[in-house]
Design a binder for these strands. Structure first.
Lengths: 234, 234
DNA sequence: CCGTAGATGGATGGTTTTTCTCCACTTCCA
DNA sequence: TGGAAGTGGAGAAAAACCATCCATCTACGG
């Protein structure tokens, strides 16, 4: 998922110690979640805490916030590109490949981090390369599915990542247990909206929890007055 | 939109001064935007600034943060209920009414505030009543559209507000000019996914900007390194 | 098995944000 | 026109956050 290299990936292969590498990955994982939920100015203390490491470890690995943000972005986009390639190779029907990819990307919480970070990234060769690697396979999937006549012709590339950003953002600060399942369900509906006219009969049954009015109220109530004992932060 | 009464709506009709009432509404409007963009812990200074009033005015109207959050929630849910009723009365075909309602709700940025506030609300009779008034007409629209056979039968009430929350949240902290148009476009796709099988031919053409790969990259670039000169906050 | 370079965590001081009150001045309304 | 209600902004107190230092610990090559 992440190159086993130093923070600022360059040409040197410094072979970090095993525990250091492990910690670095846990920091990136935690940072991804926290940035997604709280935005790019989230306290670094919290990221360290959630990663199970001390603050000093975080500062050693990522000297300042920009480094960390950059690291998360590269990590995330790398995984995104891999997910697209995997989906392309695993499915024969291009629309199904697209569908597989979208669900995979959602699982990785990819779309939720980037909008939080995008205003803080600086142009960068490594980053640009990773971006290219992430975007190209997706564009390819779109072209193929439209050529096959299963993806409606008036959608464009942007409709996919942009909806991914929307649908993968945690709903109520990540306190809702069913959040992921609900996101997949709603993504499925969106995907049905993306099918070409005349292919509506190929719709799958909707997965995940069907939230009726009563359930909706219960969800709401469960979240009310949740005083966030340990972390009253945003 | 908002009752012309004092913050904690009770039985007294104290008849606020005209300018005070005007300011109160501007505060609510500003708070709605800021909470939506920055979450429930956004600085109150900024809300006051954006409302064009001094901080003292805000504190006079809403003694503490909880009061303000409550006020915003009531304001927002009231408008939501009204939008649902308006849509129901304006359209004959129930699916079209649903569609009108969803777009109206999106315009009001309704869905984006509630998820930010929902963890901070305390149970309350007034609030519960307003919530009921907001939810019931929507449920009614769902029932009617399913009875008419134009809304797919396996969707439930929750699929509407939950997607509304997702799609109406600003994408990149609200710095993207096309944000609203894009949201409407993607909502339209989602709505097409909600149509009953066999009614796909009734799809409208997609509105709003069709973002292809090139445009997407340009959007990305435009946001890069945006140092947020005046407000480097989350 | 051991020595050491590298890695770790948490306390700590200093800085920046944010809150919320106070008061001199302004504005609506009767 | 009188006066009560309303207003803005300065500023002190409090809280949150950053970023470093150092005593201790651990992976790993010999």
């Amino acid at each position: 998922m992440t190159p086993d290299r130093a923070p600022t990936a360059g040409t040197e292969p410094p072979r970090m110690r095993a525990d250091a590498r492990r910690n670095r990955e846990q920091i990136l994982r935690a940072a991804r979640e926290v940035f997604a939920a709280q935005g790019p100015d989230a306290p670094l203390d919290e990221i360290a805490r959630r990663a199970g490491v001390g603050v000093a470890t975080l500062y050693r690995r990522f000297p300042d916030r920009a480094d960390l943000i950059r690291g998360v972005a590269i990590d995330v986009l790398t995984a995104l590109g891999e997910a697209a390639l995997t989906a392309r190779d695993a499915e024969v029907e291009p629309f199904e490949a697209l569908r597989t990819f979208m669900h995979a990307a959602l699982d990785l919480k990819l779309g939720s981090v980037m909008p939080a970070l995008i205003g803080r990234l600086e142009a960068d060769d490594v980053l640009d390369g990773v971006r290219q690697d992430a975007a190209d396979p997706v564009q390819e999937l779109v072209t193929q599915a439209q050529a096959a006549g299963t993806l409606r012709p008036d959608v464009r590339f942007g409709d996919l990542p942009l909806m991914l950003m929307r649908v993968s953002r945690p709903l109520a600060g990540g306190q809702l247990a069913e959040d992921s399942a609900l996101a997949h369900r709603q993504l499925e509906i969106y995907l049905d909206g993306l099918r070409a006219p005349g292919t509506c009969d190929q719709r799958a049954t909707l997965p995940g929890p069907a939230v009726d009015l009563g359930w909706f109220k219960r969800i709401r109530t469960r979240l009310i007055g949740h005083q966030s004992p340990s972390r009253p932060r945003a």
